[in-house]
Every structure is written in structure tokens, then in C-alpha cells.
């Protein structure tokens, strides 16, 4: 009997305690990442908008890439991280992993939207149209739909346990499909409009341009981590609102105010 109960207890401790342990940790880390993000973003903007030279062909307009490229990179990367946490959650049955992937989704979708928006703004002067069915823009659009589907599904299911697992499955299915979608769209694109202007012909980059973009990408990383940690905290509070530690925590916070 005893040897049967032991693993049970440690397992339930693992499952229940993890969010409780993570909550204060996330609270401590998030402001630091937010600070780093703000500083990096300021440096990146300064490099991009004041230091980097004007492009010979595109003029000042090209400067939107300092936001556009970082956002596009981040939107794809965040989806992979989401799929990773979903996988961990399904295999290990840890709640925090599911919370992580759900906390990441809105940020990923936001970056996706920013990438599309800035892409359109860039496209108008460059291509003469806000939108062309370029392979990258199109797969970015489909990625946005995947994000929206994930968020809609996890919010439509009331039971949090079902929502977690269902969301994890669709995230994994999406992750398997993202490369397929990307390559099929690329193939479709080369077949249908080979002659159009493509993002591939980006101007050869000056070192300051590259540095600026990298700094902006790092800023996006730090921002994502900070925002996700804050979102994880509020999700933990919502999920565990009936537990003693959350009630104590909330009372303590109210006491401070």
C-alpha cells in the first residue's frame, strides 16, 4: 500500500505546486525582461531610423523593415515555442506547459498582425499595392489564421482541462502543417507570378542595418518573454482561484493597496 501511494503524492505535488512556485518567479523576472526590451527597442530604433544610411533604391521607406522583419521572425518562432510547450504538456501532463502555450498565442498573433501591417505599408510604395500574393505575405496570413484558430478554440471550451489538451493538439497539427503550407505557397507563387517583385531581392545590407535588425529582434524576444510571463501569472490566478494560496496571495495584494 505504502509504495503505491508515494509516487501518487509526488506526482500530484508536481502538478499542483508548479504553478504556485512559478507565479512569484514569473513576477520577479517579467519586469527585468520588460526593461531589457525597452532599452533594446530604443537602441534598435535609433540605429534603424537615425544611424543606418538611406537606401539608394527605396529611400526612407525601407526603414519599416526594422519592425517588419523582427515581427515576422518572432511570429514564426513563437508558434514553434507554442507547439513545443503543447507537446511537453501532452507528454508530461503538466498544466504550466499548457498555460505557457496559451499565454504565448496572443503575442504571436500580434507580431503576425504587425508583420502583415508593416508589410502592406512597405508594399504600397515599393510594389504599388498594399497587398500582393507574395509567398511570404501569404504564409504569414495563414499563420495568423492558425493563431486565431488556436485562440478561438481554447476560449470556446469551458472546461480548462479539455481546452488545454484540445489547444495542444491543434497547435501540434498546425506546427506540422506550417512548413507544408509555407512550401506549397512558395511553389504556388513561383508558378503563378514569377515576374513580380519579391522580398528576396532585399537591398544588400550595410552592417548598421543588420545590427539594427538584430537588436530589434532581441527586443522582440525580451518583450515576448516579459508579456508572456505576465499573462501566465494572470492565467495561473484564474485557474487556481479556488486554492488557498491564491486567496492568500490576493488578500496580501489587496492589503498592500
Amino acid at each position: 500500500m505504502k509504495d503505491m501511494q508515494k509516487p501518487e503524492r509526488s506526482k500530484s505535488l508536481f502538478r499542483f505546486a508548479a504553478p504556485q512556485m512559478f507565479y512569484p518567479l514569473a513576477g520577479k523576472l517579467a519586469p527585468w525582461f520588460a526593461g531589457v526590451a525597452a532599452i533594446l527597442a530604443a537602441i534598435g530604433m535609433w540605429l534603424g531610423f537615425f544611424v543606418a544610411p538611406t537606401d539608394a533604391v527605396q529611400g526612407e521607406v525601407y526603414r519599416v523593415i526594422y519592425i517588419h522583419v523582427a515581427a515576422a521572425w518572432m511570429s514564426m518562432f513563437v508558434y514553434l515555442v507554442m507547439a513545443f510547450w503543447s507537446f511537453v504538456g501532452l507528454v508530461m501532463n503538466t498544466r504550466l506547459s499548457f498555460i505557457m502555450s496559451q499565454a504565448l498565442a496572443p503575442t504571436g498573433a500580434m507580431f503576425c498582425f504587425v508583420a502583415l501591417w508593416t508589410g502592406a505599408l512597405w508594399g504600397k510604395p515599393t510594389w504599388g499595392a498594399y497587398w500582393v500574393w507574395d509567398a511570404r505575405l501569404t504564409s504569414q496570413l495563414l499563420l495568423l489564421f492558425l493563431y486565431l484558430g488556436f485562440m478561438a478554440l481554447t476560449r470556446a471550451i469551458e472546461d480548462p482541462r479539455r481546452a488545454d489538451k484540445a489547444g495542444a493538439i491543434i497547435a501540434l497539427v498546425g506546427a506540422v502543417n506550417v512548413p507544408i503550407i509555407y512550401f506549397s505557397v512558395k511553389w504556388w507563387n513561383t508558378l503563378h507570378q514569377g515576374a513580380s517583385v519579391s522580398l528576396n531581392k532585399a537591398p544588400s545590407m550595410a552592417t548598421t542595418m543588420l545590427t539594427g535588425m538584430l537588436v530589434m529582434a532581441l527586443a522582440a524576444w525580451a518583450y515576448t518573454i516579459a508579456v508572456t510571463l505576465w499573462r501566465v501569472r494572470s492565467l495561473i490566478l484564474e485557474r487556481e482561484r479556488h486554492t488557498d494560496w491564491v486567496i492568500a496571495e490576493l488578500n496580501a495584494q489587496e492589503g498592500k493597496v
Partner: peptide, 9 residues
């Protein structure tokens, strides 16, 4: 053994 059940919250 030692079953616990939670429905919703």
C-alpha cells in the same frame, strides 16, 4: 485508490 474528481473548477 484515493480518487479525486474535479468538475470544471
Amino acid at each position: 485508490n484515493a480518487l479525486a474528481c474535479v468538475k470544471g473548477d
